[in-house]
Simulated assay, not measured.
Amino acid sequence: MKIGLYFGTFNPIHIGHLIIANHIAEHADLDQIWMVVTPHNPFKKKDTLLDDYHRLQMVHLATEDFPKIKPSDIEFKLSQPNYTVNTLAHLQEKFPKNEFSLIMGEDNLKSFHKWKNYEVILQNHGIYVYPRISKDVENLELRNHPKVHFIEAPIVEISSTFIRESIKNNKNVKPLLPSKVWEYIDHNNFYRK
């Protein structure tokens, strides 16, 4: 089975994440997309994150109507902070019959050469890249790499940071979130302070 791994803190997961994941699930040569909830991204401050369990629960709620999209807590069991290369090695060992690829935005591809052991990742895994509004994309070093596949997905510029700030400032963000995710956030009074 060909699995696309869409990593994120999903703090919270929003419709932009689902639009991208569903588009790739339906239009790329992948069988499933796993939304991998990252407990702690080495580039983000831990104190801005909701508890791992709550973010995973929101991904469950958001994806339950999408049979090709699955939530994954695989990184919860790995030492923190974790690196993608370690997660991929762990998944390949645990699911040797599956073929794992990464899903990332063009903005992440620009800084991919800074990732730990990025050459090992490229050697063993495909990368599916969705468009973002960003500068210097034409000059991307990896644009023509045989393992890098550009997907003509919709450009979605919604950020979890914007959603958190809007909730904190008492703005209505319901259209930006799956309804069950909004209900979960509202019920638990998340992001209000």
Rank of each mutant, 00 (worst) to 15 (best):
K147T: 08
I133E: 15
E152S: 11
P154Y: 10
E152T: 08
N139H: 15
P154H: 10
I127Y: 07
E138P: 04
A153K: 06
Y130R: 00
I133D: 15
P146L: 03
I155E: 13
E152V: 02
I151Y: 08
I127D: 07
K147N: 13
P131R: 11
E138T: 12
N144L: 01
F150P: 05
L140I: 05
V148Q: 11
F150T: 10
E141I: 12
Y128L: 13
S159F: 12
D136F: 00
V137M: 13
L142M: 05
R132D: 14
R132M: 06
F150A: 11
K135T: 14
S159L: 10
K135A: 14
L140T: 08
E152L: 04
P131N: 10
E141G: 05
D136N: 15
E141N: 11
H149I: 13
R132E: 13
L142I: 05
S134M: 06
N144R: 01
L140H: 13
P131Q: 11
S134Q: 04
N144Q: 09
H149E: 07
P146H: 12
R132P: 04
Y128S: 06
P146F: 08
I127H: 04
Y130A: 00
S159R: 11
K147P: 04
K135G: 07
A153E: 03
I158A: 10
E141W: 07
V129Y: 03
D136Y: 14
H149K: 14
Y128H: 15
H145S: 01
A153G: 00
I133H: 15
A153N: 01
H145F: 00
V137H: 02
I155M: 02
E138I: 08
D136C: 03
V156R: 13
H145G: 03
E157M: 02
P131Y: 11
S134K: 02
E138W: 02
I127S: 03
E152Q: 14
K135I: 15
N144C: 06
V156L: 12
E141F: 03
K135E: 10
S159E: 04
R143A: 12
E152Y: 01
V156G: 13
P131E: 11
I127F: 00
S134H: 10
D136M: 08
V148C: 11
I127R: 04
P131C: 14
I155F: 07
V137K: 15
A153Y: 02
V129F: 06
P146S: 12
I155Y: 07
A153D: 00
K147A: 08
A153P: 06
P146E: 09
E152W: 01
R132H: 07
S134I: 05
P131L: 09
I155G: 00
E157Y: 06
S134F: 04
H145M: 01
H145D: 12
L140Q: 12
E141K: 13
D136Q: 14
Y130L: 01
S134C: 03
